[in-house]
Structures are given as C-alpha cells and as structure tokens.
Design a protein around this nucleic acid. Structure first.
Lengths: 74, 74
DNA sequence: ATGTGACTTGTAGTCCGTG
DNA sequence: ACACGGACTACAAGTCACA
C-alpha cells in the first residue's frame, strides 16, 4: 500500500517546481496547512475528493499528475 | 467535485473490458461487493488506498488508469 | 515555513438483507 | 448480476498547540 506515499512525493515535487510553500498550496486547495504537511509525507490516506482539490491547486490535469514514472509499475 | 464520478466510470469501463462482474472485481480487490457498486456509480468518496486496490485488481498501472481523456481537463 | 501528536466529528467501508 | 438500504465499526477529515 504505497500509492499514499507516492502521491505525497509527487505533490511535493510539483509544488516545489512551482515555487510554492505548503501553506500557499494548502490555501489554494482550500485545506489546512498541517494537513498538507502530513499528506506530502504520506501519513494520510487521502480521499479522492481531496486528491482532486490538491491536483487542481497544482494547475495540472489528473492525467498529467499521474503520468510520472512513479505510477507506472504494478 | 467530479473526480469521484469519473473514477467510477473508468473502473466500470475497464472492468467490463476485462469481462468481470462487480463481485469478481470486488473480491480481487479485497473490498465489499456492495461498496464496489456505489463506487462505480460515483456515490463514494473513495480513499487513495482503495483506489490503489481497485486499480491493481484491474491489472493496470495507476498511470495507465488515469491516461484516459476523461482525466485530461482541468 | 515545516512537522508532529492528540483530539472530535463525520463518513468511509462492512455486513446483513431486499427486489 | 446489479442496486439499494439499515445498522454498525473503523478511520479520514479537520483543527489545534507546540516545536
């Protein structure tokens, strides 16, 4: 069960690429700052609604978000 | 909030392509049969761990699962 | 600006049925 | 085979004090 971890890593990667702080991204996504921290660190079993909020806040499509090699292995 | 709906549709699409029943897929994924029904119908805010379980049961990578045009719009 | 532990409330997810 | 409902338990959502 590590999609949870991979998701967090990918969020961090894209967030940093955009030069945003966790706080700024959390605000954009409409979720709590400390919640964003634990999501990025793979500590939360995020729901698909929050997944959508976060991906949207990253200004990327769901398809692009999961295009990374990280998600290519079964 | 419609990633939830799109996810369900995509699950159904791939499940039917594999000729599986909801019951068979649910069993493979290790989740409840009645739950799979409501997931496919977009009625549930699925957690990322169950997303992973379902995608894995479909014998597809996460990246391939979300490659569909359904997930390309922001 | 990031991370953690602890906590309450709402709902995810299960299990029993029905048509 | 699929969809739905009621009753239940497990756990995610959401927030806070603190470092």
């Amino acid at each position: 069960m590590n999609l949870q971890l991979q998701f967090g890593e990918r969020v961090r990667e894209l967030r940093l690429a955009k030069g945003l702080s966790q706080e700024a991204l959390a605000y954009k996504a409409g979720i709590d700052r400390t919640y964003m921290t634990s999501v990025e660190n793979g500590k939360r079993n995020v729901s698909i609604q929050n997944v959508e909020k976060i991906i949207t806040a990253l200004d990327i499509s769901v398809s692009e978000f999961f295009k990374s090699d990280t998600f290519k292995h079964n």
